[in-house]
Amino acid sequence: MQWGSLSDFFAMGGYGLYVWTSFGAAALCMGGEVLLLWRRSAAAAGNHDGE
């Protein structure tokens, strides 16, 4: 392992902003998609129960 400390890890050799923004965007997009689908399928199931 090449990280001396936790702050070393978050700094990413000075590129922390770019690296973490990239991974954060990926987590947000993929997590957001799952959340939207979750709500959509829950709404669909709810509608059908109500009918």
Binding site: M12, G13, Y18, V19, S22
Partner: peptide, 13 residues
């Protein structure tokens, strides 16, 4: 440097 680590999300996407 460590900027290349973006590859692990960029190339798969």
């Amino acid at each position: 440097g460590d900027a290349y680590r973006i590859i692990f999300v960029h190339v798969p996407a």
